[in-house]
Lab assay of single mutants.
Amino acid sequence: MAAGGDHGSPDSYRSPLASRYASPEMCFVFSDRYKFRTWRQLWLWLAEAEQTLGLPITDEQIQEMKSNLENIDFKMAAEEEKRLRHDVMAHVHTFGHCCPKAAGIIHLGATSCYVGDNTDLIILRNALDLLLPKLARVISRLADFAKERASLPTLGFTHFQPAQLTTVGKRCCLWIQDLCMDLQNLKRVRDDLRFRGVKGTTGTQASFLQLFEGDDHKVEQLDKMVTEKAGFKRAFIITGQTYTRKVDIEVLSVLASLGASVHKICTDIRLLANLKEMEEPFEKQQIGSSAMPYKRNPMRSERCCSLARHLMTLVMDPLQTASVQWFERTLDDSANRRICLAEAFLTADTILNTLQNISEGLVVYPKVIERRIRQELPFMATENIIMAMVKAGGSRQDCHEKIRVLSQQAASVVKQEGGDNDLIERIQVDAYFSPIHSQLDHLLDPSSFTGRASQQVQRFLEEEVYPLLKPYESVMKVKAELCL
């Protein structure tokens, strides 16, 4: 049975990233139509530049190519590739079939990587351009969430054990800070992308030097003109047959890092959902379990974690691919890159769409948070109580021993009897502590235990987050809708 299948058929496997999760716009960027249309555009740009620099290419040939950029006979191309065992030459023939007058000058002087690699770089750039505003929107939604809850005390956790208090907004800023680093890295790697350009079979530009009869300047002009037509500021000066596969490492490393950030955020949300302090959106008709109707599973956060793990592992592909590119190139890269580049971007696209949807509907339960604080705060307040007693004339050592005994009794009630923490009640009825009984409410005010959390939130948002989001103001209103 021949390899390949009808990918629109229910009898043929289709990647869930495309069929179930990723956005239509990201799927289109990695589609065959987008790819092969870009090949034709690159052939047109090459012909236009070659004509401008004096090669015998007519206006009629150029116009014929322009008129057929979208006229792609995919069936013919597939048949040609089956016959020739070469995808680029299959599309040269297919393009030439609908451009008979231009057929002889299509791909003039070029090698397969002229269309293959340059198209990949265009796709990487455009895919990054799709991700950047999506990530900015996630940051914006979380920034709104953090600002609104900047002063809401909550129990902090280290080692997932109760620690000092923080605020809900401050905790959210930990998430935002990681995503801001990801946004900066995505922008950097996007701006650092260079075009492969017009380089020939081993990167020496020998074929173009021959076409222009040894004119170095025209060869350099050709490279520059096509690079500018493709919208790049610069091209690699040095290439082998391909652009260095280190570029793929750079791009997928940034995406993998984004995956790590999203995994951490969504894990926190899942843990908070278990504590009943916070939940992701839950639709009115949504079913959490087929057997347990009360369940409210954090399905979206779980999906993000599941896909983020996949995204983090994909960076190993370009690392290994770059390491086995012998001399000017081997074909070890080809099949692998067809999979890992598309999957990385479709996965990143999915987790950003999902995280935006989550961040637009996060639900906080202040009463649950308050109750958990009441359970733990008495123990945390013991040092403040000791200091207040010393100020009232008591002995630190005597007070410490009193607190120690009462704390152990209260802990026994919590752990052995399943009761509430009654340390404060014990202190309130103990005559030894009568000098500070009137101060206990103040000493137990949760806001006095959150330090500068709310001020940190305000400063972080104003100095770091809002300036970073400013270039994306025009796209901030787009909502994230999930079908599944």
Results as ranks from 00 to 15, higher is better:
P56E: 12
L346T: 11
E462R: 12
I62T: 11
R426N: 09
R329P: 00
T330E: 02
G259P: 03
R149P: 01
D178V: 03
L255V: 12
I373V: 11
A47K: 01
N421S: 10
T52M: 10
G240C: 01
F157P: 00
R309H: 12
E25W: 01
L46C: 07
D178I: 01
V368T: 11
L132K: 11
Q458Y: 11
K295V: 01
Y13R: 09
S67W: 09
A431G: 13
Q184E: 13
K75Q: 10
S334F: 02
L319N: 03
V115N: 01
P471Q: 15
C305R: 04
K134E: 13
T347Y: 06
A256E: 15
H437R: 11
P366W: 06
A136K: 14
G418W: 05
D248S: 02
N357H: 08
I237A: 06
S438W: 06
I358S: 10
L69Q: 08
T330A: 13
Q375H: 07
A308H: 07
F28M: 12
R459T: 12
R404K: 12
G8V: 15
G418T: 05
I373T: 07
A273T: 13
R20Y: 00
F208Q: 02
S474E: 14
R196E: 11
L186S: 09
V429L: 15
A344V: 02
T450W: 08
G419S: 10
Q456C: 06
G240E: 01
E250A: 11
E328Q: 00
P153I: 04
E79D: 13
V254S: 10
P435A: 08
L211W: 01
F36T: 15
C399K: 04
R404V: 07
T111E: 00
E81Q: 09
S334T: 13
C113E: 07
R270S: 05
H310T: 08
P281V: 08
N274V: 06
H159R: 01
F157Y: 13
Y466A: 15
L272M: 14
E60P: 09
V363Y: 05
D349E: 10
R149A: 08
L142R: 01
V364T: 07
L135T: 12
I287V: 07
E417R: 09
F345M: 11
D182P: 07
S334W: 05
T382S: 11
H93Q: 15
F236Q: 05
K391L: 04
S257Y: 08
V478D: 15
P435S: 09
A102S: 11
L165G: 01
L319R: 03
G214P: 04
L255W: 02
Q210S: 12
M181L: 11
H159G: 01
G197K: 02
F433K: 03
T154W: 07
L131A: 14
I265P: 03
E79C: 14
L311D: 01
P471D: 15
S474Q: 14
L311Y: 00
Q397Y: 04
L135A: 08
Y13C: 14
R149G: 08
L319S: 01
C266L: 13
